[in-house]
Amino acid sequence: MTIERYCAPRTLDEALEILRAGPVSPFAGGTDLMPQSQAGRVRLAPVLMNLRRIEGMGGIAENDGVVRIGALTTMTQLMDSAVVRERLNILWQACDHFASDQLRNAGTLGGNICNASPAGDTLVPLLVLDARVELAQKPNGRIETRKLPLAEFLLGPGRTTRAPQELLSAIEIPLPAEGFYGAFFKLGTRPALDISAISIGLGALHDDGCLRSVRIAFGAVAPTAIRAARAEAELEGRLLDQDVIDAAVQAADTEIHPISDLRASGWYRREMVCNMLRRMLEDARSH
């Protein structure tokens, strides 16, 4: 592997030009790409493109009930953002469990999404928040963008629907209603610097003992982070009693396909999804 060219474009336009000429390995924090290429799991393209200097691809802005987060926003910047902490708290919680301070300073939200790890820490809360991704390319001398739900963007471990000439430019999150309850759980061998054995996101609105707009997502129990539609349906609008919790947990059990790897066995992952979803629902009830 030889890198023939390293570039650090200043504008999205310039970056997309370079991508169109491809093949290119784009990176921002490099916290995934570096170890993966060192370990030989990823083959670097002849052109290595640093995205960090592109202007206007960072920042967090709220407009018309939609929060737009630039793809280059770091985990630390997310944690420092008032709107993330107050309105998208489940994302804030996930960032709080993300690797270490050093990696949070370097790693970006766009990078975590494009890396498409089944265990990616931000993917679970973003699925709960119904996030959409914006992809940009420049096919005919003009920048074109498309937006799609995150769930459609993720295809499998390390695989997304991003075309080689496309860049993930931003993430858009519709602001949840006031009072939206969000909880994130991550299980690892140690509390910091770990990759999830499983993770769970739960989002809902409390309504007189019932949960509404229920959204549940799981990490590290399927080829991608996933939403658990059947578990959500069991909960939606129902009084959150023990029977309903049991039914939701049973439904969740049918929606996951955990594998056995270094971090945990499939059996343990399944046990943990059930035990911890139950705990989270019980916590939500008493919240």
């Binding site: 170890p35 370990a39 270490s100 061998t189 140690r190 509390p191 910091a192 770990d194 270094l262 971090r263």
Partner: peptide, 23 residues
Amino acid sequence: LMVEDGWVRNPNFRDYKLVTAPE
């Protein structure tokens, strides 16, 4: 150090878990 059938499966600090400060 996970040695399975003679292979070391976690030759790195990501998967070989030393105790970190919070613990």
